[in-house]
Design a protein around this nucleic acid. Sequence first.
DNA 1: ACCTGAACACCGTTCAAGT
DNA 2: ACCTGAACACCGTTCAAGT
Lengths: 207, 207
Amino acid sequence: MSADRQQNRKAYHHGDLKNALLQAGKEVLSLEGVNRFDLRKVARKAGVSHAAPYRHFADKEALIDAIVKLGFEELAGRLAAKIEKSGHSTPEKLKVVALEYVLFAGQNPWLLREMFSGRSSRNRNNEAYIASKAVYRIYRDVIHTGQEAGEIGSGDPNALAGVLWSLMHGLAMLIIDDQVTPYAEGKRGVERFVNYSVSTLIDGMKG
Amino acid sequence: MSADRQQNRKAYHHGDLKNALLQAGKEVLSLEGVNRFDLRKVARKAGVSHAAPYRHFADKEALIDAIVKLGFEELAGRLAAKIEKSGHSTPEKLKVVALEYVLFAGQNPWLLREMFSGRSSRNRNNEAYIASKAVYRIYRDVIHTGQEAGEIGSGDPNALAGVLWSLMHGLAMLIIDDQVTPYAEGKRGVERFVNYSVSTLIDGMKG
DNA sequence: ACCTGAACACCGTTCAAGT
DNA sequence: ACCTGAACACCGTTCAAGT
């Protein structure tokens, strides 16, 4: 622990302001949404002056970009972990992935919206855009493996992954926006609706 | 035409400021997004002072709510018109609806995002939320009619409509966010990808 | 009844100055 | 090298005053 950290309450140098801003910002973004995301508030939460963030991020948008990137990384990690712990059948893996995607959305509704706000895809060298591709690869690989095992119908796994992602993302958005109640209400209802949707799509892939 | 309208350039009373604000606001929202939506700019575009909008809308949020409601109404109108002009087969109707949904998204990306920003479903008496239900009813009715004709598998048409909507909305979001390229690139590519997706889901509904 | 202009609080961003 | 405080432009909202 550095000298800076030990006298932290009054330390002139924060020590790890960049991460503190990311954490405080993620909290504001996830819970309150972009509309109420203001840089001065985030700086206040991190215990620094309103000008301090500019030492670490070009502007407000750059901070949000970085938070969005973290969001994709967290999502990728959660999906991968669920696949790891799930059974061996491909349909089961896909259901587990879809449910986890929807749960992530329920826990971070505003963050998910911001992840698909167009900012990540402004240009393809964007770190958030690259992070989003890692998420895509996760279910594409599940589909590809499933095809090799004969559990999923044929077709370009990349395209099938796109269809699956569309369904999962639409489910997540409509559920957090209260548009598919009462079919997906409560933890049980959501799980049932997601399973039903994914099963239907997988059945269609076999045809 | 009223006296107010005839001397319009210098008229103290605008005449139809409410609609002028809605139109100017819809343009800003659709093209620039919420982040760049500011009330003073909208007022400027409508040719009035920055305080004038408060005579017609409680605040900025109320104006956006009203624009979002218009968005759902326009979408409902477009979907209904496409169904009207399409062939008789239910799968064909659903493909036409999905494609129109995606085209609407491409033409009004920011507006669509705002339509699913959580604001419409804050409470269920919200006019925007009610307008969104009219959109829902359109494909639910197509599905229901298709079931009676034996063209679509059995199941609660409301739930099936929810699944279909999820797929359509996910396709729209991922396409405007450049996440399913190169599978849905260009007008042709988008049409092919949407048809493929919807066909797959419909096939699954038969099982 | 509808609109304007001044006023206030607050945010994003910059920059010279502090440690 | 990192952070602060003052400063500036600009936005949301209110309100007394104008037509």
